[in-house]
């Protein structure tokens, strides 16, 4: 499955953008919400076209889930919110309760959260319930419109495991975030739009290792460890490997300073 933006322009925010987003990939969009705005409402496209599998893209709330932790809840109780999301999309499944419980388990939530009133939930719980409510109807395209950046370590790990599971189910997964370190850790592909133009689209590891000069030139934040490696090389002529794990970085740094 693939979504293609062909020479898309919107307002002053996007100018002649052409990108392709495919399934079996986790695609990150750095610091830009307009691409997702157009996926929510493709009628806003002023020039160009968005297609899905070569057909004109139309927003379909059964196919697409857009997860934004700041969106309001529509019902009073957690279970009602989840069932409401399924019902308005015409989703029916005799085993829906089992599915809900399975998603709660995957996200590290207690099952008794189902009977809680939504306004008593913490910010993290609201976010995770939003995820459950938006995955229950088995969408094909999953968009984290506003990724919650500050999940605690336990729930962050659970969420990442869930995303990896969904990635392997031939779904399109898009994550929008302003935190480049988060995107570096979890995405396969990254899209960076700067001043309304596509600056770069490519494999995340390639963009954040081979294109750092381009990113810095355009004042785009670079993840910490690749930046460390880059600056060590360009400023101090010290060659380190590009690493993600802090233990590997420490070994490399320690060897180079000893």
């Amino acid at each position: 499955m693939e979504i293609v933006f062909e020479h898309v322009s919107y307002h002053n925010a996007l100018n002649d953008i052409s990108i392709k987003i495919t399934s079996n990939n986790i695609t990150g969009i750095y610091h830009n919400h307009d691409l997702i705005k157009l996926l929510k409402n493709p009628k806003l496209v002023e020039k160009g076209m968005i297609t899905i599998n070569d057909e004109k893209y139309k927003y379909n709330n059964k196919l697409v889930s857009i997860i934004n932790y700041k969106e309001p809840f529509y019902t009073a109780r957690v279970i009602d919110e989840i069932l409401f999301n399924a019902k308005i999309r015409g989703y029916q499944n005799d085993n829906i309760k089992t599915k809900i419980e399975s998603l709660l388990d995957e996200l590290g939530l207690d099952r008794d959260i189902l009977n809680k009133v939504v306004h008593t939930l913490s910010t993290t719980e609201k976010y995770l319930i939003k995820i459950v409510a938006n995955l229950i109807y088995e969408p094909r395209i999953i968009i984290f419109e506003r990724l919650m950046d500050n999940l605690d370590a336990y729930h962050q790990k659970k969420w990442q495991q869930l995303i990896m599971r969904l990635k392997n189910e031939d779904k399109i997964i898009i994550i929008s975030s302003n935190k480049c370190d988060t995107l570096y850790d979890i995405t396969d592909e990254i899209i960076i739009v700067n001043k309304a133009k596509l600056l770069i689209q490519g494999k995340t590891d390639d963009v954040y290792t081979k294109e750092i000069k381009l990113l810095l030139k355009n004042k785009i934040d670079v993840p910490s460890f690749p930046l460390l490696t880059y600056l060590a090389s360009t400023k101090k002529n010290v060659n380190l490997f590009y690493r993600k794990d802090v233990r590997d970085v420490i070994k490399d740094v320690y060897k180079s300073v000893s």
Partner: peptide, 10 residues
Amino acid sequence: DVDRMVDVLW
């Protein structure tokens, strides 16, 4: 700050 870390390390 990454820049400062680089200056301190090397």
